[in-house]
Design a protein around this nucleic acid. Structure first.
Lengths: 329, 329
DNA sequence: GTGAAAGCGCTAACAC
DNA sequence: GTGTTAGCGCTTTCAC
């Protein structure tokens, strides 16, 4: 039972209860060597009795480090980011750190607010999936010693960055369709202002070029996932409709599947049950867990004193044929 | 550019730079009324110039509240919990709070460590999806003023709790199968030691009773999702195999689908693409977002001074027929 | 309208 | 092996 009436017990309370000096309590709590076992026992007993728990805020104020990192993603509810989150969390835990996390919702202003709120709480470092492109406001924080790693997309600052091979993956996916005889291949992707979407569109164009196929702008639709279905409807009712579709992310792949049309299809991003649909959905898979793990490990390397020049890591993608991408033209 | 060389600028630095007293800076930073606009302007300029950001740890030390809550779930990477997370996060943001979150991985010890680490950092409150059943270690924290709400399952303490109607949902799902002519219905669910799994098994039995059907233990399998497929294989090769299956959660539903068997099926938990499979998968849907929102709102009501007796809220489930649950016997 | 001083709970530096 | 003291950066109280 807690004895004190007025708020939580402090080290001072424990010290009085155990009949020792405050510093001795500090030693015991921090497992510093050189305390008489008997004394330590009395202190431990008092801690137990009073329900004492060290005030981390006070500790931080003195020591500078919070053993907490911040994670900013687009949306935890998106399976891609929740996988990444879990990986970051696991690495953090292994390093004795906790994770403050927040969803930016692809809104640069909210991202900024979250990041600055994290900095105010003096996180040791940040893993950021940037929505915005201007991160000058982070400069003072970095100068003050907060480490930052961008994941999935580059940020507006020369800091460590972990990306997927977006262009290469899209190129491989589209080439796959070409190899199966398709000549008119649609690209339906996110707004081109989003880095990953732009890269994937590049990959699409490169694959066409390599095969000597013309680029037809009427076969390209970019925008939010809700517009993907209608865009496909429109293309398919054209004079020269596409025989195959390459989709730029998981949400858009699903949106296309919901239209009921079943053109040959390769989608960027793997998703649960892609293999159980008929036909199975061929995808270019990224590895969100590896992305998160890599970014977090890079962050903790910085936190443990690595001050080399910023790194840029690119992770591979993997084409997984399941049927939809192997349909003939 | 930051001027100071030694660490971050403090209020004292800003005060010196602006030629005012520290307290005046504090007033400006906290938007307290009664500061001469001209003075305030000088302070703001100095803040900007030095790249000052208030140290939240120091503030917390003085004021007691951290404007941070803790969230403990089983696994962020599970879509059910990631939906819940996002909802909690949104409510927190609306109340000006941040969220420290952690995955317990259904491990009571890790749950305890996370919770106590959150308490050390003096979170204002906790939303907990409890893995363990003993939460005595939370008692002193609650006495010290940290609020706690259990979500999805009851905890081992008389605190606010938000649950789904697990038994009722399972009963409705199984009754649905009975109504479509099934008499031998299997139950494949999580380990019965997990609260929700036990409740759903109860609902299953109640539906059988109501229909005057016998309870046959050989039609019940409980355990982790990996064992679900083999369990179904076994049942179907029996003398009197089931004609329908009720699955106790989303992961198990998917595991059953992967077996390739296509008995009549109703699953607890909705999941993305359930409607695109052939046949569509009939489910008893919970609403993880509502669960998270309700729990977080309850928490913030407590934080704003509501000290009534602990509440217990039960959220409804919804049967969504999509084909698999309407297959005849 | 502004400021000086005390102190939140802890750790670091240095006695004893 | 143990204790004393100063001070982290802020808010609170009270004085001007």
């Amino acid at each position: 039972m807690t004895e004190s009436v007025r708020g939580r017990p402090t080290m001072k309370d424990v010290a009085e209860a155990a009949g020792v000096a405050l510093k001795t309590v500090s030693r015991v709590v921090n497992e510093e060597p050189g305390v008489n076992p008997a004394t330590a026992g009395r202190v431990t007993a008092a801690i137990e009795r009073l329900g004492y728990r060290r005030n981390e805020s006070a500790r931080v104020l003195r020591r500078g480090r919070t053993a907490t990192i911040g994670l900013v993603i687009e949306d935890v509810a998106d399976p891609f980011y929740s996988g990444l989150s879990r990986a970051v969390e696991d690495v953090a835990l292994r390093h004795g750190s906790l994770v403050l996390s927040g969803s930016s919702g692809e809104d640069a202003r909210r991202e900024r607010e979250l990041i600055l709120a994290f900095c105010s709480r003096r996180v040791d470092g940040l893993v950021i999936v940037p929505a915005g492109t201007d991160h000058d406001y982070l400069r003072p924080e970095l100068d003050a010693g907060i480490a930052a790693v961008f994941a999935d997309r580059p940020g507006g600052l020369d800091a460590d960055t972990v990306l997927c091979d977006n262009a290469g993956g899209a190129r491989a996916g589209v080439s796959h369709l070409i190899r199966h005889g398709h000549r008119r291949i649609a690209f339906i992707g996110d707004s081109a202002s989003i880095f990953t979407a732009g890269e994937r569109l590049h990959g699409y164009r490169r694959a066409l070029e390599e095969a000597g196929l013309p680029f037809d702008p009427s076969l390209v639709a970019t925008g939010p996932a809700e517009q993907a279905g209608p865009a496909l409807d429109r293309m398919l009712s054209d004079d020269a409709p596409p025989t195959a579709v390459f989709t730029g992310n998981g949400r858009i792949t699903v949106a296309v599947l919901r239209t009921g049309h079943r053109p040959a299809l390769v989608g960027f991003d793997d998703f649960e049950l892609a293999d159980l649909l008929v036909p199975g959905v061929t995808v270019v898979a990224q590895d969100p867990v590896r992305l998160g793990r890599t970014a977090a490990e890079l962050l903790f390397r910085r936190l443990s004193g690595d001050h080399g020049t910023p790194e840029r890591v690119e992770l591979p993608t993997r084409l997984i044929p399941r049927g939809s991408g192997e349909l003939p033209a």
